[in-house]
Nucleic acid binder design. Sequence first.
DNA 1: CGAGTGATTGACGCAGATCAAGCGAAGTGG
DNA 2: CCACTTCGCTTGATCTGCGTCAATCACTCG
Lengths: 243, 243
Amino acid sequence: MPTRCLACPLRKKDMFAKLGREDVEAIQRFKAGEMQIEPGTAILLEGSNSPQLYTALSGLGLRYKTLPDGRRQVINLVFPGDFLGLQAGLMGKMRHSVEATTAMTLCVFDRAEFFRFFRSHTERAFDITWLAAVEEHFLGEALASLGQRSATSRMAWALLKIWHRMNGLGLCDASGRCPLPYRQQDLADALGLSLVHTNKTLAKLRERQLVSWSGGMLRLTDLRALTDLAGAEFESEIVRPLI
Amino acid sequence: MPTRCLACPLRKKDMFAKLGREDVEAIQRFKAGEMQIEPGTAILLEGSNSPQLYTALSGLGLRYKTLPDGRRQVINLVFPGDFLGLQAGLMGKMRHSVEATTAMTLCVFDRAEFFRFFRSHTERAFDITWLAAVEEHFLGEALASLGQRSATSRMAWALLKIWHRMNGLGLCDASGRCPLPYRQQDLADALGLSLVHTNKTLAKLRERQLVSWSGGMLRLTDLRALTDLAGAEFESEIVRPLI
DNA sequence: CGAGTGATTGACGCAGATCAAGCGAAGTGG
DNA sequence: CCACTTCGCTTGATCTGCGTCAATCACTCG
């Protein structure tokens, strides 16, 4: 039995903008169904013209691009509440792939319906544009990380970014541990580093007692020091719209 | 005397989507004025809450982020037809800066007006979202370049990207030369390379007779070979909306 | 128990950073 | 009109962060 939008567990969280009953019901009507997927499953494929859009309800995933020579760039991670497939919806086809890292639950929306929804719900259209702009902002930051920062600094930046997001979602426990069910290879592909160097960089952070990451759980021991290393500011997580 | 939207020289180009007279007039009403700026002038500043949005009418610029340590990452270049300030419009403040490289002419829009415009012109709202999605796509590609490609490959990719865009805008002459009024430092900051290495990489491409770039003009002598080097596909430029 | 997957560690080499110096063109002021 | 500065481009020498190669280890699973 699919989650009813009015009872959506995500919508209760502080991180997501509050909507009136009417608005939530409109989203409910837009929603075509729900989907459970296994870890490792592809959700959207680069080049595909997906007839569906999704919102991640639970679970974690990642977006990536594959280069002609087989190398992979992880564009970013997929967290609960993320809207997936906007590119295909607007540009006709996906320019990157999305896959599930853990088991995931997705809300499914119909692409044909999407246009109607966008046109008839101005506020939601606005939210969707907002999401695109935030994503653009994130990618700009990521670009600056890859272009200008050292391996250590990049890694500190990425871990902090992830941790803050997880924290915003209430996925950290009291002691500040949060789930991080990715492989080192995923992190390496996100940071533009080799697996080996990623491992060694991580080892250094561990030695310095700044980070521990094992068994799929991440703990940042010294946010201050990491933030210094990252050489960036981390604002408290913004309230986002949830479609 | 400001350009009238109905007579906008950009709108005539194939690269931009055709609009009906009504639609163009709506944009004209949205337009608050026009602005001429000198080379080197800042258009939007990171952190600022600009009361205005712009569309580049002519001239070239660049978007960049400055890191706390003073390093700079060029996010992308600004071409005629680009819409500037959407981030500030949506997120309250700019997350990167924009500055003019050459003299530029900008159409000025009022931010307060922007919300009304977005809400009352659904098709234009759609176009704006489309623009954000395309930008997101571009940044994803750029990220993959910085993360996965060698200096030579990155440079080939960037020059091709620029050339194709210029070509789409009809800014290349018959012999395939196009303007490129940037400094090597700008390119370096875009590619995440040092100035010195950028220069040497460029020198290699020149020796191999693939590229010539001097006096602010770029000529790509062998698109095929460069495309191979870049290890990417270059689709013909997409038709974009023009606000 | 063997096979597969992911983490870890050491040895080695190279792409690209950094340092340093010189060059030509354009501007500026005395 | 000529010193003098400034800015962008070039080039060489040297250093190093990170990639690549190659093993090994710890787990999990059939």
